[in-house]
Computed example of a mutant assay.
Amino acid sequence: MEMGNRLKKINEDNNFFYLTVALIALLISSALAEIVGQGVIDHVLQLFIIVTFVVCLASLRFDKGWSRFLITLVCLWILATLVKVVFERSEMDFVMLALTFSFFFGTFKSTAKQVLFHGKVNTNKVIGSVALFLLLGLMWAIVYLIIIEYSPQAFTGLEAITWGENFSNAAYFSFVTLTTLGYGDISPITPLAQVVVYLEAIVGVFYMAIVVSSLVSANIENRENNNG
């Protein structure tokens, strides 16, 4: 009941705050799940992904097309989870990763449409730009997990274990790459993995410039409209 009341309070002036908090909670939960134990990692992670689904649906419900897209993803996610649990089909791991990537990509697209290049720049939009950065890192983390599913030796420092157990490590490597820190504890070996990694680094370099320029241009356009 309390969560339902909080979701009702989400509006176009604070929606990106809730979205950003949900994404940060997802990252933290994946790390804490590893501490709890391997037997519950997948279940904890799936629970938080579902919670993130719900919060994102409430946060971005103002984009009607995205809302229908997300509801479809939720239904497919639940179906894939049931098939995996009941029939123990390992192929469902790839399906769930693909659905998760689609979720992050759709959320990124909807958020970018509301944040970048138009409208009044306010605190909510600035927080939305943070959500975009988190979504970029999460999308690449899923791509790394998909690569590992088909090429377990693609990375040094990333073991070929279930994607739920590897999610936190993949997210860590993704954000280290996105920010071009490059600690070196995890590194790509295969050509495909190397291409994906340096593409993420390129996106990370240009992201800040694009976001800053878009917010500035949107603010200038909004002032010009207000002045006449």
Results as ranks from 00 to 15, higher is better:
residue 166 N to A: 12
residue 108 F to D: 04
residue 27 L to Y: 02
residue 41 I to G: 10
residue 205 V to N: 05
residue 26 L to V: 07
residue 204 G to I: 04
residue 1 M to L: 13
residue 207 Y to E: 01
residue 67 S to G: 00
residue 169 N to S: 14
residue 2 E to K: 13
residue 66 W to K: 11
residue 91 E to D: 13
residue 86 V to F: 12
residue 53 F to N: 01
residue 60 L to C: 13
residue 84 K to H: 09
residue 128 G to P: 03
residue 41 I to W: 06
residue 15 N to L: 02
residue 14 N to K: 05
residue 74 V to Q: 01
residue 111 T to W: 03
residue 136 L to K: 06
residue 57 L to A: 15
residue 185 D to W: 10
residue 142 I to E: 02
residue 83 V to D: 00
residue 198 Y to I: 15
residue 88 E to W: 12
residue 145 L to Y: 01
residue 79 L to V: 14
residue 115 V to C: 11
residue 52 T to C: 15
residue 121 V to E: 15
residue 3 M to E: 12
residue 13 D to C: 11
residue 40 V to K: 07
residue 149 E to Q: 10
residue 21 V to N: 07
residue 60 L to G: 12
residue 223 R to W: 06
residue 151 S to N: 10
residue 96 M to G: 00
residue 194 Q to V: 12
residue 117 F to N: 14
residue 45 L to F: 14
residue 73 L to E: 02
residue 119 G to F: 02
residue 99 L to A: 01
residue 4 G to L: 06
residue 208 M to Y: 08
residue 114 Q to A: 15
residue 198 Y to D: 13
residue 52 T to D: 08
residue 100 T to S: 09
residue 218 A to V: 07
residue 2 E to M: 12
residue 86 V to N: 04
residue 199 L to R: 04
residue 138 L to Y: 08
residue 76 L to G: 07
residue 156 T to N: 04
residue 129 S to F: 05
residue 115 V to E: 10
residue 1 M to W: 06
residue 30 S to L: 09
residue 77 W to I: 01
residue 56 C to G: 15
residue 143 V to G: 04
residue 9 K to V: 06
residue 54 V to S: 05
residue 130 V to F: 10
residue 99 L to P: 02
residue 216 V to P: 13
residue 116 L to M: 14
residue 60 L to R: 06
residue 95 V to A: 13
residue 72 T to R: 13
residue 207 Y to I: 02
residue 77 W to G: 06
residue 130 V to Y: 02
residue 150 Y to W: 02
residue 27 L to G: 14
residue 152 P to Y: 13
residue 90 S to I: 05
residue 85 V to F: 15
residue 175 F to T: 09
residue 192 L to D: 08
residue 57 L to T: 00
residue 10 I to N: 10
residue 140 W to A: 06
residue 146 I to N: 04
residue 53 F to D: 02
residue 80 A to L: 06
residue 142 I to S: 05
residue 204 G to A: 01
residue 222 N to R: 00
residue 128 G to V: 13
residue 204 G to H: 06
residue 89 R to F: 15
residue 176 V to H: 00
residue 182 G to R: 15
residue 86 V to H: 03
residue 88 E to C: 07
